[in-house]
Computed example of a mutant assay.
Amino acid sequence: MATLQALLFDVDGTLADTERDGHRPAFNMAFEEAGLDWNWDEALYGELLAVTGGKERIRFYLEKFNTTFEKPENFDDFVKGLHAAKTKFYTQLMAEGKIPLRPGVENLINEARAANMRMAVVTTTTPENVTALLENTLGADSESWFEVIAAGDIVPAKKPAPDIYDWALEQMNLTPADAIAFEDSSNGIQSSVAANLKTIITINEYTKEDDFSAADLVLDQMGEESNPFTVLAGDAHGHAFLSLDLVKKVHAA
């Protein structure tokens, strides 16, 4: 049986509630700056999360929810510009400390570091967003703790395709049996499972109704000693929060 060598972390919704507290408000700030009357409330944004990637989400919104909008001739540039503005506002929200890590995330990452466990970020969000989150929550040098940052458009097919996980594993010279993924959404679990990775899920308000039957453990959060998790599916082996020891047990099961 392979020994666990690496932890592969999704970002949005997994490390922090970035979708609700960061990306959605930042999109709305970008729309306002561009003079658009669009507003993505929490319910609409929940539906838009069916699509991964910010630029893809803007296109999906116009195809399904705002079909009367007259697209400009330079539509690709228009979408890129909106997305760039949104990234600017997201980074600003991060710098203001508006988006904290979810319970237990920092503890697990620190424990993994202390044990010299290899780590990577595997996400569809932009590299700038990853940097903003890590630096403003874990500290200025924290991005260097992660051996690989697999983010954004580094592969053409985003989650639920497995390509981003396949790419990260290849960069780390690992097989799927050597690692475990941490995800929060249907697109995330489809991606990690298609890459043959064992997966631990921490749900959030947007994803609590998603199908996680393929996950190895489903929790409401990673949890802390003073704030234990609730097990929604799988075996937590008597643990109350997500320690490295529990992660190893889930991987070995």
Rank of each mutant, 00 (worst) to 15 (best):
Q92Y: 12
P25S: 04
N66P: 02
A120C: 10
P103Y: 05
E135D: 14
F60P: 00
A194Y: 14
T137K: 12
D216E: 08
R57D: 01
D37M: 06
L169M: 15
G54F: 00
L7G: 02
K55D: 13
V231Y: 13
A115W: 05
S185Y: 14
P127F: 02
K208D: 08
A50H: 13
S185G: 15
A85C: 07
N107A: 15
K80N: 14
I149L: 12
A2G: 05
E225C: 04
H239D: 13
F146Y: 06
H83V: 00
K208F: 05
K86L: 02
D41P: 08
H23Y: 12
L246P: 03
A195N: 12
P72D: 04
S226A: 15
Y61M: 03
H237M: 11
L48G: 00
T18W: 10
T18D: 13
K98F: 09
T87A: 11
F65T: 05
L82V: 09
P228D: 15
V11S: 06
P156T: 13
A214D: 13
S226V: 07
S186L: 15
G81R: 10
T207G: 08
F182T: 02
V51S: 03
L49Y: 05
K208C: 09
A120Q: 06
A195V: 05
P72L: 08
F229A: 09
T18V: 03
E56N: 15
E33L: 01
L15D: 00
